[in-house]
């Protein structure tokens, strides 16, 4: 990821003491290929907010997360992250195949120079939290896709992130696994109240997890709707089958159809 390969960054991601965990101020991103992926995005995620982003394929959702994490630089505007640790859950589990479950979770602790005993103890606790007790010594190749995703979640949780970025983490999973992991993620959010920015293709998943759902237009990505989701946490699985829930998904879907030019895939 070299900055020189892209146009000169106008403003680098800055850290401030602002209460927001993450703020986009008029952020645009044009790749060196000439593609304008994001156009004048304004978006704030406060601590205790869980914001989902839905939008048609290729509208710049992943680009938004890469900017938020500092992996990529904006070409205009500013990305401001509060003084918090950032964790990124990729679309794929992205585990190291030669490390055990425990080793994979501990990895980020090693890189953050946590003392050995502390990181071991925390890793074991978090592995238990995501329901993988007893699998600490297994390698990723021996786990199912859903279990691998749990390891990836556990790894992201190890450093007590203040800002949690998710790029379609459950996209490759079957519906049942996906809903179960959604339930657990929502529980986690309820108990820890980090700031979350969650990319998904599923309107129902977005509504179920979030305090707000942001709808993006097709490329160049712009924010075309910002819907508050009023349900209290913790949310029960059954919420998905209530008329209120159906109404909220209807609102989000309508915004998507109106502006997203329909190609939600």
């Amino acid at each position: 990821m070299s900055a020189s390969a892209e146009a000169v960054p106008a403003t680098a991601a800055a850290r401030s003491t602002s209460p927001s965990a993450l703020r986009f101020e008029g952020v645009s991103k044009r790749f060196s290929t000439g593609t304008l992926a994001l156009d004048a995005i304004d978006l704030t995620v406060d601590a205790g907010e869980f914001v989902s982003v839905v939008g048609p394929s290729g509208c710049g959702k992943s680009t938004l997360l890469r900017l938020a994490s500092g992996l990529s630089q904006a070409t205009a505007g500013a990305v401001v992250t509060g003084d918090v640790r950032v964790s990124y859950v990729f679309q794929d589990p992205t585990l190291l195949p030669w490390r055990t479950v425990l080793g994979n979770v501990e990895l980020v602790g090693e890189l953050a120079k946590l003392p050995r005993s502390e990181r071991r103890e925390k890793a074991l606790r978090i592995i238990k939290l995501v329901g993988l007790e007893g699998f600490e010594r297994q390698r990723p190749g021996q786990l199912s896709g859903g279990m691998q995703m749990r390891v990836s979640l556990a790894r992201a949780l190890l450093l007590d992130p203040g800002l949690f970025l998710f790029d379609e983490p459950f996209g490759a999973l079957d519906e049942m696994t996906r809903e179960r992991l959604g339930d657990e993620l929502q529980q986690l959010f309820h108990s820890r109240r980090f700031a979350g920015l969650f990319i998904t293709h599923s309107v129902a998943e977005a509504v179920f997890l979030s305090t707000r759902v942001v709808v993006m237009s097709a490329r160049p990505g712009q924010i075309v709707a910002d819907v508050e989701i009023p349900f209290d946490y913790p949310r029960s699985t059954e919420l998905r089958f209530t008329p209120e829930f159906a109404k909220m998904t209807g609102v989000v879907s309508a915004a998507l159809r109106r502006k997203g030019k329909g190609e939600l895939t």
Binding site: L71, F90, T94, L96, L111, A112
Partner: peptide
Amino acid sequence: AHHDLFTLHG
């Protein structure tokens, strides 16, 4: 993606 992970964690 693995490189990104290592970059993210400095």
